[in-house]
Design a protein around this nucleic acid. Structure first.
Lengths: 192, 192
DNA sequence: TCTATAAAATGACCGTGGTCAATTTCAGGA
DNA sequence: TCCTGAAATTGACCACGGTCATTTTATAGA
């Protein structure tokens, strides 16, 4: 029972990822076709599925990478203390999450790990989002009657709700930022 | 410019819907194949797409119908006053929404109307959920510092968050009901 | 009743994601 | 350097959702 991984494996994988990134760059995530990726990478279709379980798995990697970078960017800034500051700090993250309907749907679909042993890149990012929010809330001017964990989960829930409504024609009168601010004020600083 | 609708149109549509319901009854929503539905209905595949824009449109109708019935059931009961009562009253609704991963994903995807002119059955149900929650909260023992609208939106957001986490192996330690209760207590009755 | 025309139904066909038996390539030992 | 078994790659093939030119059927008017 050997399981040597040959060098060309990594090379092929890198070629596929690069080709996929190029394709996305051109037409966005929604329009990506596996056929286009393998042609750009110069490999057969079967090779693609030897490297990624399915198209979604590739998307998870591509989107997860970008989202992770956005989270790093948010984390690098000065920890926000107030609701508007929190929203501003998370702006790049939310912006990317809402950049395409397809991206948002995929993020939601993979936000939870189906099995403990296989936390995908997106589930990892949601954990990271949660941890960052918790860290901030620990030091922010917010209610103290419930745990920071709970507050952070709520921030995530309201952010998703606000993003959902952004894609909805019925509720497009209010902007995403305004809506999220209303939510978070009521959630983080009640009776104020 | 006539647009007479022939009787057989309604008949064919009814046959398709009945066949689809039967197929779902047997294997659930996820496993439904258009081919299977048209065979059961005794029509050609093209006919299916003359009646429904795509497979999702049929699913919207089937799932929307069931969800609407659940909402009616919830509405028929005595208006709940407290958090546990609210959760109990909504139990059949949430149960159906979580009955299949596929159902939950589709509900989320169609929860918002893409265009004002075309509110689908599922977007309609989400509106209905919101209205019912608002009606209850108007008379319930909850915080009064923010509008009932906002409270109802929050209930929806937290319910979705709790349902999401139910499908996630990382957070399966806590049950859906317990988690939602924690959320709603903190949201509806802060500092209590 | 017959005819014209719009509505409805048909099924061969296509695009795209995904599979798998067959083939090629790699790495290590004789 | 050659041989051998495992790893990697290939591309013909399949499944399934969705399209559309063609055919069939219903209905209104002569």
């Amino acid at each position: 029972m050997q399981k040597t991984i040959q060098k060309r494996t990594l090379k092929t994988r890198a070629k596929l990822l690069q080709a996929a990134a190029d394709v996305v760059q051109k037409n966005g995530y929604q329009a990506l076709r596996v056929e286009e990726v393998v042609q750009a990478a110069g490999v057969a279709k079967g090779t693609f599925f030897a490297h990624f379980h399915d198209k979604d798995a590739l998307m998870e990697i591509l989107i997860g990478e970008k989202l992770d970078a956005c989270l790093d960017q948010a984390q690098a800034a000065e920890p926000p203390k107030t609701v508007p500051q929190i929203i501003e700090a998370l702006a790049p993250v939310h912006e990317f999450m809402m950049s395409e309907r397809y991206v948002f749907d995929l993020l939601i679909r993979y936000s939870g790990a189906a099995a403990i042993s296989e936390i995908g890149p997106i589930a990892y990012c949601f954990e990271k989002y949660f941890r960052i929010a918790m860290m901030w809330l620990d030091q922010a001017e917010v209610r103290q009657d419930v745990s920071t964990d709970l507050l952070a989960e709520g921030v995530q829930a309201f952010a998703i709700q606000a993003m959902s409504l952004k894609f909805c024609a019925l509720h497009s009168a209010t902007t995403f930022t305004d809506r999220l601010e209303t939510y978070l004020r009521a959630w983080l600083t009640p009776a104020g």
